[in-house]
Design a protein around this nucleic acid. Structure first.
Lengths: 95, 95
DNA sequence: CCTTTACTTTCCATGGTGGAAACTAAAGAT
DNA sequence: ATCTTTAGTTTCCACCATGGAAAGTAAAGG
């Protein structure tokens, strides 16, 4: 069980959603995440970069049906940080 | 039951904590909230003002043991917004 | 080789955030 | 009555976050 630890990198609305989307799955395509968040390419790209630089997600470029696509997944560190942040939120709001 | 509605005014860490502290009680003193958040007077005062201007909290100056103190409480609007935001968070993080 | 697709980066403008210090109003002390 | 203390409030300032638009890039596909 992760220790409750508020993480302001993850707390930002868009990044919280990115982590929440990635948490239950092994990976997701850039375009899928973008559609869920309803943000521009540039905005998502910048959040991805921020999370990647914190080693919270890993980015893989791999062909998906002929063309190269960007795949995103939470790292173990990212998952721990995400779960820790969710635990911190639960402590704040009381379960 | 409040409708899930993400509220960025409430989402900010310090303001989320303020709302969470006020939610279960009828009112709290400024100094008590300040001690919980561990912020400076000026910072708390500005967050209080922002929440008050949104009509999310009400501020009363009333004597408490001789000296005048500032008492804070969630308004009904504030409570609805807070619960709606918590519901939105739960939707994002999945229960 | 030219175009399209799928991002990435830069530019820019705006707004949030916090600390420190100056300011204010109301008690209480002398 | 005036001085001091207490309890905030407001201003000043500097910095970081955030987003959109537009320009840039790299790898297919035609």
């Amino acid at each position: 069980m992760s220790k409750a630890c508020f993480d302001s990198l993850i707390h930002a609305h868009n990044r919280l959603q990115i982590c929440a989307l990635l948490h239950p799955v092994s990976e997701l395509e850039f375009s899928v995440v973008k559609a869920q968040l309803e943000v521009s390419d540039s905005v998502l790209s910048k959040h991805i970069k921020a999370l990647e630089q914190a080693n919270y997600i890993s980015v893989a470029k791999r062909a998906s049906l002929s063309r190269p696509r960007t795949w995103l997944s939470l790292t173990e560190l990212g998952e721990a940080a995400y779960l820790g942040h969710v635990a911190a939120l639960r402590e704040i709001v009381g379960l």
